[in-house]
Amino acid sequence: MRTCKLLLPLLALAGLLAIVASCAQMKTVPGLPASHPETLVVGQQVNCAECHEDQKKGTMKPFNSFSHTQSFVKNHRFYAASDDRLCSTCHKSSFCNDCHTNQVEMKPSIKYGNRPDREMPHRGNFITMHKIEGKLDPASCYRCHGRANNERCVACHR
């Protein structure tokens, strides 16, 4: 008990010192810029490796991994989950929320009917197709709709 009483203040002091030391070093930790220094062309499949040869210190990941190949676009959830700060240097949050949102009535493919290159989900007659796709991979529905209980879902799924 006595040892504990001695240890606790020591541990607290060590913790405090660690925090102070960390704060003192924070200025040396690099960060990403708020926005991409050059405006990129709308609709362009960005190839980061065209300009960036090595990884940026703020991301600590190879920039080439973020080149917008078709594979990247299909699997973008993996990249956004661990480093959406890099996404936000070029994309506003609303770019993500065009599809990933809680309460919206209009399908993204209708909102962006003039941008078929954006590969918006649920194009065409998805109201029929979701009966097949939902059985194939229910997790893919849950990722966007599971916590949203969209009004459109609730209308039929009673």
């Binding site: 040396t28 708020a34 949050s93």
Partner: peptide, 14 residues
């Protein structure tokens, strides 16, 4: 959909 204030520090991506 969203409405927030953000403060972005110059260092450490805070």
């Amino acid at each position: 959909t969203y409405g927030y204030l953000q403060y972005r520090f110059n260092q450490a991506g805070t």
